Simulated assay, not measured.
Amino acid sequence: MAAEKAENIFSYTREVIAGYPKEQRFTLAMLQDIQKEFKYIPRESLTLLSVYLGMPLSKLYSMATFYKALSLQPKGEHVIRVCDGTACHIRSSMVIVDEIAKILKIKPGETTGDGKFSLETVNCLGSCAMAPAMVIDETYYGKVTPAKVRDILNEYGGAGCA
C-alpha cells in the first residue's frame, strides 16, 4: 500500500510539473497544486520539483515552511481557517476558535484523529465586514457565533458534533 501511495504521489507530481514551464517563478503555483491534491506537500513531490527546476531541496523546504498556506504535514479532509485579524479579533474570533477546539477536541494547528478536520487561525481572510469570519475548505462563513459553530461543522459531518 505504501508503494502504491508513493507511486500516486510521483504520478500526480509529474502531471503538475508537465503543466508548467521549467522556470522557478512557477514554483509556488506547483506547490499549491500539489497541496490541493494531497492536503499537504509530500517529500517525494519536493524531490521531483527539485530535480525538475534545478533548485536545491532546501530552498523548496524554505518556501513550503515560509508560506502559512502550505504544509509539509497532512491536513484534514476539511480545513477550518478562523480569521484573527483586527476586525475579527475585536469581535471575539478567539471565542469561535475555542468553541471549535472544544467540539473537535483539537487546538489550532492540529488535525482530528479521524483526519476529518484541521483547525488553523489566520491573520486575514479579507472579509472584515463579515467579522468574525471563518472558511472551511473554500466556503466562507460570516458573523459566526459560538451557537452557529456546531451547525456549521455538522454540514461537514462534524466528528462528535451531533
Rank of each mutant, 00 (worst) to 15 (best):
I41G: 03
R91S: 13
Q73I: 15
S58G: 04
D137C: 06
K68G: 14
Q35I: 06
C161R: 00
F117W: 01
P132S: 08
T13V: 09
M30Y: 11
F66K: 14
Q35S: 13
K107T: 07
S92H: 12
T145I: 04
V144I: 00
Y140E: 00
K39Y: 08
M55P: 04
R150G: 00
I9M: 13
L70Q: 04
K36C: 08
K75S: 15
Y141H: 02
K107D: 11
M30C: 13
I80S: 06
C124I: 06
K75W: 12
G158E: 01
S11A: 15
G115S: 06
A101I: 05
Q32R: 13
P21S: 15
A64P: 00
C124Y: 04
S62T: 10
I100G: 10
Y40W: 10
E23F: 10
F26D: 05
P108I: 14
L104E: 02
L153S: 01
S50Y: 06
P56Y: 14
I41N: 03
A18H: 11
G19S: 11
M1K: 11
E15M: 14
S50R: 05
T65Y: 12
E44V: 06
L119A: 12
S93G: 09
I80T: 02
G157R: 00
M30V: 08
D33K: 13
H89N: 07
L104N: 03
V51W: 15
I90V: 08
V149S: 01
S58Q: 03
S93V: 03
L153F: 01
E120Y: 07
A6T: 06
V97N: 11
R25A: 08
N154S: 04
L72T: 05
R91G: 08
R14C: 12
G113I: 01
Y61H: 15
G126E: 01
L28P: 05
Y20S: 10
I103N: 01
